[in-house]
């Protein structure tokens, strides 16, 4: 029984990773049209994106079209020329060129976009995602 429970937990964990990966594919895939999307990522999200065929994860911001940044604030300055997608609410609020964010709050996924930054980087959201634009 314990084994069954462990297996279930493992499955749910795997499912959560897949969910996150799928969400990144949906969100970033609808905004950036080139394939693969060259992305600079740090932290846990790097591994998640590396598992997806849609993304080409690179080691610096120079070649990337988008940066997905978690808690590492030191990257902020180096990536100020490309759009940044935050993975925490704190970074989303703090980083000026963050056009959007995805993070979990109270067990619920939270997606946010800033209209100004989207315009600044000439990014277009699909109709489905427009309801997540902060007003």
């Amino acid at each position: 029984m314990k084994f069954l429970f462990l297996l279930l937990t493992l499955f749910v964990s795997l499912y959560a990773d897949v969910y996150t990966q799928k969400l990144y594919e949906t969100v970033l895939g609808s905004i950036f049209k080139e394939r693969p999307i060259v992305v600079f990522a740090t932290g846990d999200v790097k591994a998640t994106l590396q598992n997806s065929k849609m993304f080409d994860v690179v080691g610096n911001c120079k070649n990337a079209v988008v940066a997905v940044i978690g808690n590492d604030t030191s990257l902020e300055q180096r990536c100020k020329n490309i759009p940044i997608f935050a993975t925490t609410h704190r970074n989303y609020m703090r980083i000026l060129n963050a056009f959007g964010a995805f993070y979990w709050r109270k067990g619920r996924p939270q997606i946010h976009f800033r209209e100004g930054e989207l315009k600044m980087f000439h990014l277009h959201l699909s109709h489905d995602l427009q309801r997540f634009i902060d007003e």
């Binding site: 609410h89 709050r105 109270k106 619920r108 939270q110 997540f132 902060d134």
Partner: peptide, 24 residues
């Protein structure tokens, strides 16, 4: 809108901010 914002949060860790937008 159909969005909410946090006013108070009883959590100690990963605490939401005051008036942080919440999409339930």
């Amino acid at each position: 809108t159909e969005k909410f914002c946090f006013l108070l949060d009883g959590a100690k860790k990963d605490k939401s901010g005051f008036l942080e937008i919440f999409q339930p």
